[in-house]
């Protein structure tokens, strides 16, 4: 079975012919060339494939493409606007929350969903929301720090603790950067 679906990917409506057994992850990566979304475990354990569907963080490795017909899909490629990284991406760079980087797109999508819903999360909120995104490099501390820092920069109330100084000069907010 093949079927035509219409999905809005990062703001742009796309008409795609997909097989009944095609996973959203593979349609995004192979048909749409959006390889930012990662294949980690393929069975919903690691969160590397997280994208947002109608705003909700969802595992694209466990989502049939045919089942999101008509939906709004946001991938990590949709976070930057006009070449400006999302404050969350900036914060991840500034707090050295990226090592091998494989978990980063999933982390970003889950964290963005959290901040859209809870602009000033506590550290525990961040850890609860992101427990489904595994990272084997960082030990999570710098990732949690990045999300709290991004919440501060988003203009949320000064609830998140300030991250410790990192020595490196802070980049100015919102400066254009080549992704």
């Amino acid at each position: 079975m093949r079927r035509m679906i219409r999905i809005r990917v990062n703001g742009e409506w796309r008409e795609l012919s997909v097989a009944g057994n095609a996973l959203l992850l593979n349609v995004l990566r192979e048909d749409e060339g959006l390889t930012g979304t990662k294949y980690g475990c393929g069975i919903g354990e690691c969160g590397a494939c997280t994208v947002r569907i109608d705003g909700e963080p969802v595992l694209s490795c466990l989502t049939l493409a045919v089942a999101v017909d008509g939906c709004e899909v946001q991938t990590v490629e949709g976070l930057a606007v006009d070449g400006r990284l999302d404050p969350l991406q900036e914060a991840m760079l500034d707090t050295a929350a990226v090592q091998c980087g494989f978990c980063t797109p999933g982390m970003l999508m889950t964290a963005r969903a959290l901040l859209d819903e809870t602009p000033a999360p506590s550290e525990q909120d961040v850890r609860d929301h992101m427990k489904g995104n595994l990272c084997r490099c960082t030990g999570y501390a710098s990732i949690v720090r990045a999300v709290l820092e991004a919440a501060n920069r988003d203009g949320g109330p000064e609830m998140a603790p300030k991250p410790p100084a990192l020595g490196a000069p802070r980049r100015s907010r919102g400066a254009p950067r080549t992704p």
Binding site: M1, N21, L23, L64
Partner: peptide, 18 residues
């Protein structure tokens, strides 16, 4: 083009109805 970029796929033919 048939490239297996990952291993956990749904290999069988599937119909889908709503």
């Amino acid at each position: 083009m048939l490239t297996f970029t990952n291993s956990h796929l749904l290999l069988g033919e599937l119909d889908y109805v709503e």
